[in-house]
Write a protein that binds this DNA or RNA. Structure first.
Lengths: 225, 225
DNA sequence: GTCTATAAAAGGATAGAC
DNA sequence: GTCTATCCTTTTATAGAC
């Protein structure tokens, strides 16, 4: 019965270290030391490092998925017969992730960065985790975006949603403030400002005309339907 | 003198394996075996795995940088006094990378994916590589985008360029065709179509209004649970 | 410059006592 | 359920013969 406590401490330490230092460069030893538990206990509870990763994702993704769907439902209900709004859909998708950082209940602060780290995993592992833990929610959000942007091909929306995830992951990868461009030291902003910044970007991107090629003379300005 | 040949074979094998399987999960052994050279030779020529990575980037980035600047200069010259066009700036940035895939001179086909893999490196290494090999070129492209979008704050353009890089990396990470969303099997498209698709997305994103929050009247509720 | 051989360390995983 | 001790594999890196 004390095993439940051990299990949870392993999950939380794993989440933090996977997020901060990357998954493959975090050893089971480092992780169990940080958790203050024995190395063998981790294998007893989870079986393998890969299974532990999956358990960490499940541990956090389940409540986040519920919050995301609730936020999307709230927007749908609020709009009634009016068309859905792209930026609100993205906000519904991102706020639950951000809120975990802001409120940080028992250390969920590393969740967005953990998802960013997942992208570096081998495709089989990445696909399995996505399919198990975020596939259904992602599909619902893509459908909402397709409804909000009826003039664009549905397939295009789905593709662009993946590109939007790329921007979002970059923002939370911990590398987005890198100071490598001569003359452009990045200014640090709050997480809420980051959120609105990336929402503006991905909303503009997903709403863009179907091709970037434009007739000569046309301005590169408007992009909302 | 034969050392030069060995050196080059190591560079090319490293580029391919780093790109395909990731950097930290590619061992020096796997890499030297693929190159058909001795493990010790790699350490003789490069000193360490980290230094080898830097050499691989330099090997490819140098000609790509020249091509990128040339393409940007060509667009600037072509426009004369007319304002620069966002999509053309991104095309100048991306075409040289894509062309390496299409033409594949001596196996440069893995370059875009290699850059995507770099994102998973620890921040210090990533920052050092970016600063050394792509900082100056990136700065020039950001300045061109700032010129093309005079109504947006310069700082915002620089931030959004980083988000655009996130989308681009995702497209080339090898994970962008993952089939994890129920009912949305991604259709495979040519590299040129991918290019135009991502150009449309990032052009729309970087040109978006400064905030996603809309003017009063189109009021937007925050989704509190 | 290139090889063999090996050091030295770190990794995931397990057996078996308690 | 938890611990110690250990196995086995893989890793980066180097010493030294050729």
């Amino acid at each position: 019965m004390a095993g439940e406590e051990t299990r949870k401490r392993i999950l939380i330490a794993a989440e933090q270290l996977f997020a901060e230092r990357g998954i493959s460069s975090t050893s089971m030893r480092a992780l169990t030391n940080a958790a203050g538990v024995n190395l063998a206990a981790a294998h007893y509870h989870f079986g393998s490092k890969e299974a532990l990763l999956d358990a960490v994702i499940e541990f956090r993704a389940t409540p986040m998925n519920l919050a995301r769907i609730a936020a999307l439902d709230a927007h749908v209900a609020e709009r009634g017969d009016e068309p859905l709004q792209v930026d609100c859909i993205f906000r519904a998708f991102l706020m639950p992730a951000i809120r975990s950082v802001i409120e940080s209940p028992e250390g969920a602060a590393h969740l967005p960065r953990l998802f960013a780290r997942l992208e570096a995993q081998p495709p089989e592992i990445l696909e399995a985790i996505y399919r198990r833990h975020i596939g259904d929610v992602t599909r619902r959000f893509i459908e909402a975006l397709q409804e909000a942007l009826p003039d664009l091909p549905k397939e295009l929306i789905a593709e662009r949603f993946r590109l939007a995830m790329g921007s979002i992951f970059t923002l939370f990868s911990g590398n987005s403030e890198l100071d490598f461009i001569p003359g452009h030291s990045p200014h640090v902003v709050s997480i809420e400002e980051k959120l609105e910044s990336v929402i503006a970007f991905v909303s503009g991107g997903i709403s863009a005309p179907a091709s970037a090629r434009r007739a000569p003379g046309q301005r590169v300005e408007e992009n909302s339907p």
